[in-house]
Design a protein around this nucleic acid. Structure first.
Lengths: 326, 326
DNA sequence: ATGAAAGCGCTAACAT
DNA sequence: ATGTTAGCGCTTTCAT
């Protein structure tokens, strides 16, 4: 192992550029209100580049009293395509504001969120759902300046429209008595609750009974059992929390010798690739997270800038997309 | 917003405990070779607890010249259950050594790995596959003391045994001409290559031809096309890179009016929940990552401790598990 | 057994 | 327009 050369410091850059270390700091941070001549600026930047200088994050955070780290807390839920692209989108959006996103998976045995928050000196912590008051407190004590969202997020209702669109689609196809397939994984309950509420609302709007909600785990028996109960209750169409749950419903139907959508219609959510492989391909509702991502990123940036932002208006277009089965 | 009280420092603890700040540092870090009387020690710990003191990570890292952050670089691949439990396992294993794991998703538009590494002052960076030499260099310049793995990981061959077990299972069932279904997602190629090699080896051991490898993306056509070619070539059984790919193969068979396993046998990998919902349920090989996780964690800890660890022996038992259908 | 003091690399007043 | 200086909160020698 070759001993890696010691990291250059901003003083090294200063020396190489023939200026003071302060000037280096000013130039590199592009400090506003400073009048650095183009020539000096160029020399500094050149020296920094030559030395492959990188500011020492810890030192910077210590001195400035704030880091540029944003911590994303991912709860204990099955991570799929949707979530990982949410994460990547958020990371890019924050990167444009010179913020770095890192992710913490909540796993039961890992370190607690406040511990990790303190360990990385995060100045902001972003969650999926709202944090409870205790957690918010703990995070602030762990050094987080901003914690988002702290309230159920009226600003970006990610989930409710999903359930609503599912139910509306089925109702538009003439169904009056719907079922709703809830996931068995506890980590998904909050999200499922929101989606279910959307379906409930859609039924209410259409003057139909609320959907009969049953829990369906990802095995044959569970799906078959739920399908049985739905049939007994006159349900002709089912909204599933997500595509995997929908697949379990389809499997349950198969066990009963029923075929979709003739005997019972099923609509999934999230539009995962595997759901297109069922026979017939699953109809699915999916949700373009780009807008939510942008808002979250903007909220973080604004909060870090100390701005108490007013509600930017509710002209929300969640960009839900329905993919019909062939 | 109530202004959160300023964070207590170690001097605050010292004052509260009536000792010097140095003593606080000694006690809290459990410095070896120090003779702190039980009484003093108790007072310090008590004061720290009362004040809800947490060491300031940046200050600590600055002074100590090393952080306790380990950064996990997750390449741009579909994150599923397997990967997230790997991450959580690694986090717990590292937590036992007082190391904090955070994750960076590689996304095309996010910040570069070295940037994030520097931003969080990671002292170790862990990847899935090996990093190339340039990346290793860049990470070291970004402040990482240790980067793992830097070589193809003989130490923990995660993937090769998966393909081997799949092929062995099919061969044991009398199949002599196998197919292999490769994933279409480029991020999975390295992993797929390893698994394929395992299958190739198993075929060689059995004196059978190497498997006919075809790429199968997650849609009906792709699966159908591959199935056609396998049939033309006398293939009677297919190892799929993973369960989702296996599902695409099954869908392709369905399109040809073929049924598993009678017309063609299919074996998946990773044993995801949704794969049990196919008809008939998919047979799958899965891999218990616990041991790999332990080794990775141990390697990180050892490397950070500056130990150049010798190969700890190759008594590897990857704990591969076969779940048969039905 | 405990404390004083010197930094770690950087930012930000405050000079000049 | 640039430099001087004083910390940020902690670790770590070196005294005592």
């Amino acid at each position: 192992m070759t001993r890696p050369a010691k990291r250059p410091t901003s003083s090294d850059v200063a020396r190489a550029a023939g200026v003071s270390q302060t000037t280096v700091s000013f130039v590199l941070n592009n400090r506003p209100g400073q009048t650095i001549p183009e020539e000096t600026r160029r020399r500094v930047l050149e020296a920094a580049r030559q030395l492959d200088y990188r500011p020492h994050a810890s030192a910077r955070a210590l001195a400035a009293g704030r880091s540029d780290i944003v911590l994303l807390a991912v709860p204990d839920l099955p991570i799929g395509q949707g979530i990982s692209s949410f994460i990547e989108g958020l990371a890019s959006a924050l990167a444009e504001h010179n913020l770095n996103l890192v992710t913490h998976l909540a796993g039961a045995h890992g370190r607690s969120l406040p511990d990790v928050c303190a360990a990385v000196s995060a100045s902001a912590v972003v969650g999926f759902g709202a944090f409870d008051a205790d957690t918010v407190q703990a995070l602030h004590r762990a050094g987080a300046d901003v914690v988002l969202p702290t309230l159920p997020d009226r600003d970006a209702p990610m989930m409710e429209p999903v359930g609503r669109l599912q139910a509306e689609h089925l109702i538009a196809h003439g169904h009056r008595r719907l079922g709703y397939a809830l996931p068995a994984h506890p980590g998904l309950f909050p999200m499922a609750e929101e989606r279910l509420q959307g379906a409930v609302a859609a039924c209410a709007d259409a003057g139909a009974e609320p959907p009969l909600a049953l829990t369906v785990s990802l095995d044959l028996d569970s799906g078959a059992q739920a399908v049985g109960r739905w049939r007994e209750n006159g349900v002709t169409a089912v909204c599933a929390f997500n595509d995997e749950t929908a697949m379990a419903v389809l499997a349950g139907m198969r066990a009963h010798g029923l075929a979709a959508p003739g005997d019972m219609a099923v609509i999934g959510a999230d539009d995962i690739a595997a759901a297109r492989l069922t026979a017939p391909p699953l109809t699915s509702v999916s949700f373009d997270l780009r807008q939510v991502v942008e808002r979250r990123a903007a909220a973080v940036v604004a909060a870090l800038a100390g701005e108490r932002r007013a509600d930017p208006g509710s002209d929300i277009d969640p960009r839900i997309v329905l993919r019909e089965s062939t």
